[in-house]
C-alpha cells in the first residue's frame, strides 16, 4: 500500500465542507464521514454489505466501474479490464474493511491529492459537475458497503 501523508485533520475539514443536501437513506451521510488514521471505522449504513451485489457494482460502468482501472481475475468473464490502478487480485488479503472504506469514500485522503481514482462518497468534488450529478455521490453508502464486502472476498 502506498504511504499517504495527507493530514487527516484537513480531510476531516474537507468532509465538513460537503454539502449536506444529498437525499440519502444512509446512516452516515457524506458530510458526516469521519476519517481516523486513513480509515473509516463506522459502516456507512450500519449494516454489513452484500458481496454478491458488490460484485455487480464493481463491474457496472455507470456505478463503481472499478474494472475501468483495475484488473480483477474474479471477473475474467467480463471484457476490458483497465490497468490504470493495481490489480484487485488479493486485495482482500491486503486491506481491512476499514481501510477499504477510507479508500472508497475519498481516495485522495488515502493516496494523496494526485490520484486519478475518484472518491465515491463525495459531493461535487470537481468544478463544473454536470447537472445530472450535482449534489450526488457516485455511489450510495449501501453500494460502497456492498463493494467492500465483495473486495474482502478477493483472496489469493
Amino acid at each position: 500500500m502506498k504511504q499517504a501523508n495527507t493530514p487527516i485533520a484537513i480531510c476531516a475539514g474537507l468532509a465538513c465542507l460537503f454539502a449536506a443536501t444529498t437525499a440519502s437513506a444512509d446512516a452516515v451521510t457524506p458530510d458526516k464521514v469521519m476519517f481516523d488514521d486513513l480509515e473509516v471505522k463506522t459502516s456507512l449504513t450500519g449494516a454489513p454489505g452484500d458481496a454478491k451485489a458488490g460484485k455487480k457494482w464493481f463491474a457496472n460502468r455507470k456505478l463503481g466501474n472499478c474494472l475501468a482501472c483495475h484488473v480483477n481475475k474474479d471477473l475474467a468473464n467480463q471484457p476490458f479490464h483497465g490497468e490504470v490502478g493495481p490489480p484487485m487480485d488479493g486485495a482482500g488479503d491486503r486491506y481491512t474493511q476499514e481501510q477499504l472504506r477510507g479508500i472508497l469514500v475519498d481516495s485522495k485522503a488515502v493516496f494523496g491529492p494526485d490520484t486519478i481514482m475518484p472518491g465515491f462518497y463525495r459531493v461535487d468534488p470537481g468544478a463544473r459537475t454536470a447537472k445530472k450529478f450535482k449534489g450526488k455521490t457516485i455511489l450510495s453508502g449501501e453500494q460502497i458497503e456492498d463493494i467492500i464486502a465483495y473486495v474482502m472476498t478477493l483472496k489469493e
Binding site: P125, G126, A127, T129
Partner: peptide
C-alpha cells in the same frame, strides 16, 4: 483543473 463528479483533469 479537476472537473466533474469523477474529479479528474485532462492530465490525469
Amino acid at each position: 483543473t479537476r472537473v466533474g463528479q469523477l474529479d479528474m483533469s485532462c492530465a490525469n
